[in-house]
Nucleic acid binder design. Structure first.
Lengths: 171, 171
DNA sequence: CCGAACATGTAACCTGTTACATGATTAC
DNA sequence: GTAATCATGTAACAGGTTACATGTTCGG
């Protein structure tokens, strides 16, 4: 399993997305900005994995030329290998919040105040989107969504004093 | 500012990396798996930003042909615009932990137990790396590192019952 | 009947990775 | 002297985005 996208596609198929289009739509509806769900990424990735023997694409013969996707045993094994990669699972990828944090440190109060307000608003907005998503998503996704919300809460807490131990806050 | 890499490069220069090589080394030493710090990404990105008028590359005339980098006022403004993008700052990018979480849900206890142990070990390892990094890094980076550690702690807590409300745990 | 949603795909482009190429300086 | 580090860059490649191309089905 080369890329995160490929692993995630297998996971989507496993969770019930039975056509490439539905895999794409799942990415589009996802509250994470993972991937755009662009056809230029999804179709080639699926076709790569069909060639690799991970996915079977059964043509239905319908004029809409939908292909029904399913995982082969090999594909399921590859998916589980991907899911079990602890080092990769734990990696802190490109965190745009942390990437900017050192610059926020350097700001004076006058510049920081409105930005902090904007960040807090954006975090709230993010949590609402997450909440709305959880309502209608596959139950298996909920624990992940809750983790994302807690991550947002952590960031919000951080904003209180830009991560510096303040006079009144701790922990 | 098109990419996160470009914004981060400006930030590195702002924080004292005065040559392209030092920007690269900062990425290599970074505990986040951000970018590899590959010369094939960093040099072109810096040269793009020199062309854009964000960075001045002053040739020193030394035989080692080091170029001293500094931010122009335009570059500083671009950096701050990048840093002030609240929506992007708050985005949950490609979180490999959350991406895998729905698959962990589906595992039976027999499979889950060793994986959970591996994940906990990886999280501890990550926190140690983070700790070692914080010791010698620019003080401005510390609050970001601490946030990453708390993020790891959140993940570790999640692992206790795979995010499901257990009989003995809560919150 | 017409627009939205379903459905698959390609082409140009951008950016990042790996590997290569070159050479100077420093520490042992 | 030689290995590690400093220093800059390019070329081939891989993977994702945007925009385009094409056609079907369903709801109003």
């Amino acid at each position: 399993m080369a890329t995160e996208l490929e692993g995630t596609i297998l996971s989507e198929i496993y969770h019930g997305a039975d056509t490439a289009f539905r895999v794409r739509r799942a990415f589009e509806l996802s509250p994470y900005s993972e991937w755009s769900g662009s056809s230029g990424a999804v179709y080639p990735a699926i076709n790569r994995m069909v060639s690799a023997g991970y996915i079977v694409a059964r043509e239905t013969g319908e004029p809409r030329r939908t292909k029904k996707l399913s995982l082969t045993p090999l594909g399921q094994a590859a998916m589980m290998t991907w899911a079990s990669d602890a080092v990769r699972a734990v990696a802190i990828g490109i965190d745009p919040f942390i990437l900017r944090a050192s610059l926020w440190q350097a700001m004076d109060e006058e510049k920081w105040r409105p930005l902090r307000a904007a960040l807090e608003a954006a975090l709230q907005q993010s949590n609402q989107t997450l909440e709305a998503y959880a309502q209608q998503a596959n139950p298996a996704e909920r624990p992940g969504v809750e983790l994302a919300q807690k991550h947002n809460a952590l960031r919000a807490k951080w904003l209180v004093n830009r991560g510096r131990p303040g006079p009144s806050e701790e922990g």
